[in-house]
Design a protein around this nucleic acid. Sequence first.
DNA 1: ACATCACTTAAGCAGTTACTTGACTATGCG
DNA 2: CGCATAGTCAAGTAACTGCTTAAGTGATGT
Lengths: 115, 115
Amino acid sequence: MLNHEERLDLVFRALGDRTRRALVERLVRGPASVSELAAPLTMSLAAVVQHLQVLETAGIVRSEKVGRVRTCRITPEALRAGEAWLGQRRTSWESRLDRLGDVLAESGPSEGSTS
Amino acid sequence: MLNHEERLDLVFRALGDRTRRALVERLVRGPASVSELAAPLTMSLAAVVQHLQVLETAGIVRSEKVGRVRTCRITPEALRAGEAWLGQRRTSWESRLDRLGDVLAESGPSEGSTS
DNA sequence: ACATCACTTAAGCAGTTACTTGACTATGCG
DNA sequence: CGCATAGTCAAGTAACTGCTTAAGTGATGT
């Protein structure tokens, strides 16, 4: 079991690494095998597999093995959850600024200001 | 100096921690002092300050000290950068699915399908 | 059958993170 | 002044990360 906060922990932490973001960038253009994903990277294959596991436990990627090839693909829900969290905080912040603007406008543009 | 990838590293890593997300959630509702931010949390004040430093180096929060009180507030640009990254990858993924759908549709809805 | 390919698993290690405690430095207030 | 408030700084530590290498496992190609 994995609640919403735990999921966000895993998603944001997973994305907080260039290599893993690079993997995501490759995978949004379509599925790929582990070796295809590893090819452009300078690290060992084992290291790439470990990064993929991080992405997979975060729910960002899923993979299935056919024969000896593991094919990885994006699962967009987790990315959407991260985007949604950020969007909600941004709108919350913006609406606060709006209310603040309203209060300042209410005091009148030429009436006695705060200064 | 801090390039775009480094900034994203810091932003996503900063958000990959519940405590820091809680601090952000508090701060989107308006500025607060360090002790106000620490009050609802169970950890030491020093620990909260350390979390705030992580948020500040990520560019998510800025703070200024007046007298003996440090007041923290959100800087929304960094959050927007994270949201933008996620949004771009999502649309990239979605447009790929659209193209895939087009190709499948092109073969004709009642013509010989893949099965 | 045998080699090769595509991973998989495990161990180890340097560096980082998320805390803690304790000592310290300003304010600000009566 | 004297004392509480609001942080600041430095050390220490246990757990976690991001790698590495090396030794498997189980397809696949010839």
